[in-house]
Computed example of a mutant assay.
Amino acid sequence: MNRSHLTYLASPAWAETLRTELLPWLKESGDLGDDVLEIGPGPGLTTDVLLRLTVKVTAIEVDPHLAAQLHARLPGTRAQVIHGDASTVDLAANRFSAATCFSMLHHMESPQAQDRLFATVHRLLRPGAPLLGTDSIDTELIRNAHIDDTYVPVDPAALDERLRSTGFTDVTVTTTNEHQFRFSARKPLD
């Protein structure tokens, strides 16, 4: 992640956006349960939001520096930070009561890597558990914010089919503003 992008994701402005936009949506989406998987927390301001809503958060961060910083910032909390690739993480199947990924899919190296992540998350979720996420819409402003950064935009129009092809149901994709969309899906009960 480039320096300016990372600085913003650790800023009070981003924390306020999460408090006023993400937190209400998560509350409206229903109970996250007792054991939430967070994919790609970056600096961890989203982890802070999740800790307000659940008993335990397992945050998987691929960047070793960010994972170490988050781990150091959250000792003695109900968060476990794992440094690793969430698409290949070795965790128990059917463990998590919900999974989240906020504005991180576009940082993965390819659509195929994103799809592998969806399949892994599906395996890790309990039957009936939700996947909740947000990501960026491919605009010039967003592309410019990702100069010297991995940027593989997710097409919101294709996300429904991509999630369904990995086994999810009840898929909803909603554009929230000109730069972002939200999505939710559910692992079937059977």
Rank of each mutant, 00 (worst) to 15 (best):
L189V: 12
A145E: 09
R78K: 15
A185I: 04
R19D: 15
F181N: 02
L18Q: 12
T175M: 09
A129L: 03
D63P: 03
T47Y: 01
T54A: 01
T17K: 13
D34S: 12
D63W: 00
P24C: 13
E21T: 10
D135M: 03
P127Y: 01
D35V: 09
P24N: 13
A157C: 10
P130D: 02
E178S: 13
T176K: 10
R78C: 09
T47E: 00
S184K: 07
L131K: 01
H179K: 06
V171W: 01
H179A: 11
N177W: 04
S29F: 06
P64A: 07
A157Q: 14
Q80N: 13
V89N: 06
Q180W: 08
R164S: 04
T100P: 01
Q80Y: 13
S11D: 02
V154Y: 07
I137T: 05
A59I: 03
V89E: 07
I39T: 03
G167W: 00
Q180N: 11
S87V: 01
L163M: 04
A72K: 13
S136L: 15
A10N: 12
P64M: 04
S110M: 09
S4K: 15
F183P: 00
P188G: 11
M108F: 11
E178M: 11
S11R: 09
P111S: 15
L37I: 03
T169K: 03
A72R: 13
F181V: 01
R73K: 15
A92V: 12
L23A: 14
M108V: 02
D135R: 03
I60H: 01
V49C: 05
F102N: 07
A113M: 07
L131M: 10
S4W: 10
F118H: 08
D190A: 12
M104L: 12
D31F: 04
S103Y: 14
M1E: 10
P64T: 03
T176S: 12
R182H: 09
L163Q: 00
L32E: 02
T169W: 04
D48P: 13
K187L: 07
A119Q: 09
T134D: 07
T20P: 00
V81L: 04
G128Q: 01
T17S: 15
T172S: 15
L6W: 04
P111G: 12
H71V: 11
T7N: 12
D138L: 07
S184H: 10
P64S: 09
L6F: 07
L51A: 06
I147T: 15
S184F: 04
K56R: 14
G133W: 00
R73I: 01
P43R: 08
Q112I: 08
K27P: 11
S87N: 03
V62T: 13
M104I: 05
L132I: 09
E61M: 05
